[in-house]
Simulated scan of single mutants.
Amino acid sequence: MCSLFGLIDFKECLSTHTKNKILNTLARECQVRGTDATGIAYNFNDRLRIYKRPLPARKMKIHIPHGVNVVMGHTRMTTQGNAQFNQNNHPFLGKIDGSSFALAHNGVLWNDKELRLEENLPLTSVETDSYIAVQLLEKNKTLDVDSLQSMAEKVEGSFVFTVLDKDNSIWFVIGDNPLCIMFYDGFLIYASTQEILCKVIKKLRLKAPTDILEPKEGEIMKIDRNGRITTGTFTPHTTFEHWWRKYPFYRSYYEDTSTNYDDLFSVAKAFGVTTDEVQALLDYGCSEEEIEEMLYDPELFHEMTGELLYAY
């Protein structure tokens, strides 16, 4: 489980100081979903800049230069690829016809190795499953609705992708993970859950947003630097066969139609995680799938739930 976040100041109505304050607050609220690494991407002086470190957001100061109005960010919980090797962290750099783009991913992909063979993609030193999305887009040699649709229909797993292009548009490719976008008069902010954004609003004392979007699975959305929205669609995968093979206890979860959380609490207990910790994440808005994903790193789980239980 990770978190996406970002900002588009489409009317250029925010000062640089305010944008930095918003971004730092967003990142710190997003760290409940991942503290292994934090990163941002933005365009400046006709170049894509990516700044990422293997640090939780609370230990990393985000500072964008004057004139930057579109920023894409990510906080990471490691599932594949050691976060201490910065190449494994998000956002990732991609290139198409000499132009750079940045991609960030919330979720887990389980057919990356198969796709690399099937698509005859080059070997890479990046160990993270998410990087296969970058390689598929590079192979398509274009960044548009069709290439994003093709990529989204080839990968298998849980995902939301964000892609920042050279024209300062952010693309959102929505799988079965959450995403929320809040619009204000002149700018927007987004994060993986509405709960995160509500905490940001409270801390920054922002007014209520003028509109809230929570795009659904199968949607592709482009928001350009002027705030204009264009959309497309893709057909999501519906099979969990590979996921079950890799993470066995998921099989029993998806075959069980129980509406309570007894099974989740029982599995958590086996990992040394208390019911209170699980409930804190459920109350925060995390899904059962995301919580089970987190259980593979109990130390990180305790750290994040501790912040929820005792920090507020």
Rank of each mutant, 00 (worst) to 15 (best):
E217H: 13
K202P: 06
I189F: 06
K222L: 13
I201K: 15
P215F: 04
R228S: 02
F183I: 02
I189C: 03
L204S: 11
Q194Y: 02
E214P: 04
L204H: 09
Y190E: 05
Q194A: 12
N226A: 13
G227K: 07
T210Y: 11
S192G: 03
S192P: 02
E217Y: 14
M221F: 07
E195N: 09
E219V: 03
A191F: 09
K216G: 07
L188W: 09
C198S: 09
L204F: 14
S192Y: 07
N226I: 00
D224K: 01
K216P: 04
F187E: 00
A191H: 09
P215K: 12
I189W: 08
K202L: 15
G227H: 00
C198R: 14
I220A: 09
R225F: 00
G186I: 01
L188H: 03
R225S: 03
K207V: 08
L206E: 02
K199Y: 09
R225N: 01
I223A: 02
I212M: 10
T193V: 05
V200S: 12
F187N: 10
Y184W: 01
I196T: 07
V200T: 07
G218T: 01
I220D: 04
F183Q: 04
I229R: 15
L188K: 06
P209Q: 06
P215Y: 08
E195R: 11
I189R: 11
G232S: 06
I196K: 15
E195V: 12
Q194H: 13
G186M: 05
R205Y: 07
L206G: 09
I212V: 09
I223V: 03
T210S: 05
I196P: 11
K202R: 11
R225T: 00
A208S: 13
K202C: 04
K207R: 15
E195Y: 11
G227C: 00
S192M: 14
I212E: 00
M182R: 01
M182F: 06
K216M: 15
I229S: 06
G186L: 01
